[in-house]
Structures are given as structure tokens and as C-alpha cells.
């Protein structure tokens, strides 16, 4: 049986990768996918911890995260589509209508 620690290390790695993705990627869709990666890293950690503690509230948390992430996707993609319609680009470096 794999130790809980191993799952946590994996989830940390995924989380860091996701964070880097958000910070380094310029395409809004990819940024958004990196956020999803962070959320899934969390799900993995929660599931592992839930097994470690032998109780279900971790799983419960995972379900909430999945649901909420779905809602986020809906809104996020709609925003990206809207901005693509007006700008024909989803590069976040080109979002500079406001300076200051």
C-alpha cells in the first residue's frame, strides 16, 4: 500500500506546477486549465488524507470542489468567449485597457 506521504508529495508537485502555469502562461485558457490543475491537486490531497484519517469529510470536500469548479468553468469560459468576440485574442498580456 502506498504511503499517504507519497500522495501528498505528488499533490504538492501538481499544485506547484499549476501555480507556475498560472504565473507563466499567457493564454487565458491555459491559465484557466492551470487553475484546474491546482484544484485537482487539492482533490488528490483531500482524498489521500481522507483515507489516512479513515473518515469521510475529506471526500465530501472533494465533491464540493468538483461542483464548484464546474460552476467556475461555466462562468470563466463564458467570460473568455466574450472577450474573444470583442478582441479576437485571449492573450492576457493584451488586456491593458486600464493603466495606472
Amino acid at each position: 500500500m502506498v504511503q499517504t506521504d507519497a500522495y501528498i508529495v505528488l499533490s504538492l508537485v501538481l499544485f506547484v506546477l499549476g501555480t507556475l502555469g498560472v504565473l507563466l502562461r499567457r493564454n487565458a485558457i491555459l491559465v484557466f486549465m492551470s487553475v484546474e490543475l491546482m484544484l485537482n491537486a487539492t482533490n488528490l490531497a483531500l482524498a489521500a488524507f481522507a483515507r489516512h484519517w479513515g473518515q469521510e469529510s475529506g471526500h465530501l470536500f472533494v465533491f464540493f470542489i468538483i461542483t464548484v469548479a464546474a460552476a467556475e468553468v461555466a462562468v470563466g469560459l463564458a467570460l473568455i468567449v466574450a472577450i474573444f468576440r470583442s478582441k479576437r485574442s485571449i492573450n492576457i498580456d493584451e488586456l491593458h485597457q486600464m493603466e495606472g
Binding site: F15, G18, V22, A28, V31, F32, V35, M38, L39, T42, V68, E72, V75, G76, L79, I80, A82, I83, S86, I92, L95, Q97, M98
Partner: peptide, 16 residues
């Protein structure tokens, strides 16, 4: 739109 997208990306990032 830009305001919404920026808020969304930062907000989702923060939630994560």
C-alpha cells in the same frame, strides 16, 4: 470584460 476576466482569473487562483 477585461475587469471581469482579470477578477475571474485572480479569484480562481486565490480560491485554489
Amino acid at each position: 470584460e477585461e475587469s471581469g476576466l482579470k477578477y475571474f482569473i485572480m479569484g480562481a487562483f486565490a480560491s485554489a
